[in-house]
């Protein structure tokens, strides 16, 4: 692959239509990032990872829509697999709310949590619309995919993309990936796979996701908000403060009304006795 050059936007095109749910990406990520992983627990048989969290920066989701009767075409329609990851949003909800400046946009245009700056306030977790971040209890800081910041600096493609046997995860400059994705989706449409669609390749969600997807169903099916629901936390600043101001005005008026100067005493004699 060409030199990985700072100043250029890099990301993933994750093509779920060719994902085979092998989880090599999950393991490669843990290996490279030295994540011990969670205690083994039985999930639903195929997905025992459950969600993205502090130990799982890639998570392969399985969506089983296989009909009871003999299934016929698979073609990525009936049993959906998707390797989920931080989207490295152009407009990143997490970065927006972070009070410490721990979350930065790197020279590769990725969204990176600096572990030594983060203080574990968890505001980013409340903000991320994709349930990507979790706090690592041991480390006391928020953790998520780094887009293999260290590997990119060493001109290596991310571990997960490197390990993916079917190239469901493609790493590269975002502009090139977008072109490839357009090509792929139109090929699929030509082949009659009409449910194939791109998610996050344009600015309709969070100004564009540097890690975007080819999906085989509605975004919601993959727990991804659609364009209308992809909204930023800051949208509530104005409304929130205005509402607060309004209440403040009413509250103060009420007080002023109650606290007018008056002639006293209004208290009946004897009230004091009880003390």
């Amino acid at each position: 692959m060409a030199e990985i050059t700072p100043g250029r936007a890099y990301g993933f095109f994750t093509d779920t239509s060719v994902c085979i749910g092998c989880k090599a990406c999950e393991v490669a990520c843990k290996q490279w990032n030295q994540l011990p992983g969670n205690e083994p627990v039985f999930g639903d048989g195929y997905d025992n990872t459950g969600t993205l969290d502090a130990q799982n920066w890639r998570h392969v989701a399985f969506i089983d829509n296989v009909p009871d009767q003999t299934a016929g075409p698979g073609a990525g329609k009936a049993w959906l697999m998707m390797s989920d990851v931080c989207k490295h949003c152009q407009q990143a909800s997490c970065l927006e709310v972070c009070p410490t400046g721990a979350i930065i946009r790197t020279e590769f245009d990725s969204v990176y949590i600096q572990p030594d700056v983060c203080n574990g306030c968890r505001d980013c977790i409340a903000a991320c619309p994709y349930d990507v971040i979790e706090m690592d209890k041991a480390k006391g800081v928020a953790q998520k995919c780094t887009l293999c910041y260290d590997r990119l600096q060493g001109n290596l493609e991310p571990a997960c993309a490197k390990a993916c046997p079917t190239d469901s995860i493609q790493f590269g400059p975002v502009d090139e990936l977008r072109a490839a994705a357009q090509q792929r989706v139109s090929d699929l449409h030509d082949q009659g796979v009409t449910q194939a669609r791109l998610y996050g390749q344009d600015d309709s969600v969070y100004g564009g996701l540097n890690a975007f997807f080819l999906l085989m169903d509605e975004p919601q099916a993959y727990r991804l908000p659609d364009a209308d629901n992809a909204v930023l936390p800051s949208r509530n600043n104005a409304g929130g403060y205005l509402g607060m101001a309004g209440a403040a005005v009413l509250g103060v008026l009420a007080s002023l009304f109650a606290l007018r100067r008056r002639r006293e005493p209004a208290v009946e004699p004897g009230a004091g006795d009880e003390r």
Partner: peptide, 19 residues
């Protein structure tokens, strides 16, 4: 075409799964 008693991760990306 994937001919298999089970619908597997291979079937998932095949054009036909033949149970």
């Amino acid at each position: 075409i994937h001919t298999d008693p089970r619908f597997t991760r291979t079937s998932a990306v095949s054009d036909h799964h033949v149970r």
